[in-house]
Design a protein around this nucleic acid. Structure first.
Length: 556
RNA sequence: GGUCCCUUCGUCUAAUGGUUAGGACAUCAGGUUUUCAUCCUGAAAACAGGGGUUCAAUUCCCCUAGGGACUACCA
């Protein structure tokens, strides 16, 4: 009798302020009405830096699954670690999600407003909720205060290591687990710092059977660690917050990184001790990178491509990044895209079954670039112009200015080999490439060194070059049709001992100095400084007579 | 150290108790195109190793190796 009296005292000291009861909270956050198969999913990042490509990946998967099943996808900010938090980042996450077209139904949106009935969606604003359940666990004798100092814990760990026993705070190592209420009261009166620990009933030698959506049936040892559920600053740890929030917010499927897999027994234990139904879990592998001989997780610090803002800075269309990730998630996406080239990728049905359970994939820029080129090739020149301009306004002001000043000219340039025809150009993979691709259209003071030119035109007699250019200039007429224009090129080819078609040249390679492609190459190099460009005729048309002549005459 | 996960072309992956182990990207070589591209065709390229089970194993089982995750008052 006296014992429970003391216990009440302890709880009163621990939580002097009034708290809602678990019943209050159940009423405030009623279970969601679900139809069979509806999924409620979430993304729950911690605002400790930029948004990781892996978070975007899990967000994408979670969102698609929720919305495909008529469910809800929400954003919850896990900001219980005040030391590592970087202010302003939480909204960056919402903005990033919006930027990539991942629609959240609940949580703080990009504009800063919170929507949804199950909020607040920021854990730091839910402290009372967590404390309600911590108090509940204390009352049920499923939790207890622990006054061990960091130093004591460290010493304990060293001891465990030296005896080579499993480290941690459990069983006989859990010093405060079975202290009397008097001792606890005394410690509190002395004003000692404390945390609240979960009192685990688990045994490490027992195995529990779990069912992961992606990994299937697995066995894990029971959790016997008395893990901290409330830190000394009164905030909950991830484990407690996860269990409370995902229960109250009605999450049905938790998709998260597989670094959480080992703590699954703990989470299930917590759900059980609250008598709650746990959600279904799916643990996905992180996107990795090769370093030397070994793979490793994409690191926030070391790898610029870990940060999703990298892709924006580079100017990859958001769809390209999304489709690349979709492709990683379900490899049959590729097949679907092939048969549905013009569909919005939202029409693609993402499935758990196809979600790979293999090791973490290596990030493949070749693949991203390819996907991106295909996507950009499908855009009209108008779209290319607008999207590129949007990008340049943010990341290349000078180029943005150039684009705006030369709006019509720029559109003409971008329109070359892009009018929805069958032979669309696929050489632009990201907006930051465009500048280089159109450079020569603006470079009127073209002053390429003669040596450079000769280098790009090996095997062609410099004197010939001179004469060929001369003949061309003499016959050049800006209003020539493509056929007329090419006829002139052919004529020049013949005049200087070059075959006027590749076919003819191949029939008698020894008869000619080269073929019409070599002649075209001369003009290509002189006009653009490069050997690979879009259609030459179109380029000249867009450049206009003045620029063409200026560029050609520079060589003289 | 302990616990757990993973392993098919360079990369992402498909499939299967019996297949010439399929596709995509990348690479290379041809071809079409009046130039450059696009496009088309083709080539090279993989079941980590060793044991079982089986008429038959890449597929099932075991071991080994390699890789990864976790082992915080971080998430």
């Amino acid at each position: 009798m006296e014992e429970s009296e003391n216990k009440r005292k302890i709880i009163k000291i621990l939580f002097p302020q009034p708290l809602p009861t678990p019943e209050d909270l159940e009423k405030k956050y009623p279970a969601r009405k679900l139809i069979d198969g509806t999924m409620i999913t979430r993304i729950a990042p911690s605002p400790t830096g930029f948004m990781h490509i892996g978070s975007l990946y899990t967000a994408l998967i979670s969102e698609r699954l929720a919305h495909q099943t008529g469910g809800v996808f929400y954003l919850r900010i896990e900001d219980t670690d005040k030391k590592r938090e970087i202010s302003g980042v939480s909204n960056l996450i919402a903005q990033a999600l919006e930027h990539y077209g991942i629609k959240i139904d609940e949580g703080e949106t990009a504009s800063g407003f919170e929507i949804g009935q199950y909020g607040p969606y920021k854990q730091s604003q839910r402290v009372k909720i967590y404390q309600t359940y911590i108090k509940f666990l204390l009352e049920k004798n499923l939790a207890y205060p622990c006054f061990s100092t960091n130093q004591e814990l460290e010493e304990m760990r060293d001891m465990q290591e030296s005896k080579s026993v499993r480290p941690g705070y459990y069983k006989q190592w859990a010093k405060w687990r079975d202290r009397s209420d008097e001792e606890v009261l005394n410690a509190l009166k002395e004003g000692k710092k404390f945390v609240i620990r979960f009192k685990s009933g688990g045994d490490f030698d027992n195995k529990i059977l779990i069912q992961d959506i992606l990994l299937g049936k697995r066995e894990l040892p029971e959790n016997d660690q008395d893990i901290v559920i409330m830190k000394s600053n009164g905030l909950p740890t991830y484990h407690l917050a996860h269990v409370v929030d995902d229960h109250l917010m009605g999450t049905t499927h938790v998709i998260r990184g597989n670094e959480w897999f080992p703590s699954l027994p703990l989470h299930l234990q917590l759900f059980a001790s609250m008598r709650w139904q746990p959600p279904q879990y799916g643990h996905i592998f992180p996107i990795q990178k090769m370093e030397g001989q070994s793979k490793r997780k994409l690191s926030k610090r070391k790898d610029h491509e870990a940060n999703i803002s990298y892709y924006e800075k580079q100017g990859y269309p958001t769809d390209a990044v999304m489709e690349y990730l979709l492709n990683l998630a379900n490899s049959n996406f590729e097949e679907w895209r092939k048969h549905n080239p013009d569909e919005n990728n939202r029409k693609f049905k993402l499935t758990f079954e196809k979600l790979s359970s293999s090791n973490g994939p290596l990030f493949d820029f070749n693949k991203l670039n390819d996907i991106s080129k295909e996507i950009i090739a499908r855009y009209s020149s108008e779209e290319v112009y607008c999207k590129c301009l949007d990008w340049a306004k943010k990341y290349d002001h000078q180029f943005a200015e150039t684009m705006e000043k030369n709006l019509d000219y720029m559109k003409k340039i971008l329109n070359i080999e892009r009018r929805g025809g069958t032979n669309v150009r696929k050489d632009i993979g990201k907006w930051s490439n465009i500048k280089k691709e159109v450079e020569y259209f603006f470079d009127t003071d073209f002053n390429m060194a003669i040596d450079d030119i000769a280098q790009k035109l090996p095997g062609i007699n410099p004197e010939d070059i001179n004469n060929i250019v001369d003949s061309f200039i003499k016959s050049y007429n800006e209003s020539d049709s493509k056929d007329e224009w090419f006829e002139k090129i052919k004529k020049i080819s013949r005049a200087y001992g070059y075959a006027d078609s590749i076919k003819i040249f191949k029939e008698n390679p020894n008869k000619y100095k080269g073929n019409v492609a070599d002649i075209a190459k001369i003009f290509r190099v002189l006009l653009t400084g490069r050997t690979q460009t879009p259609d030459l005729y179109s380029i000249m048309l867009v450049l206009g007579k003045d620029r063409v002549l200026k560029k050609l005459s520079v060589f003289k």
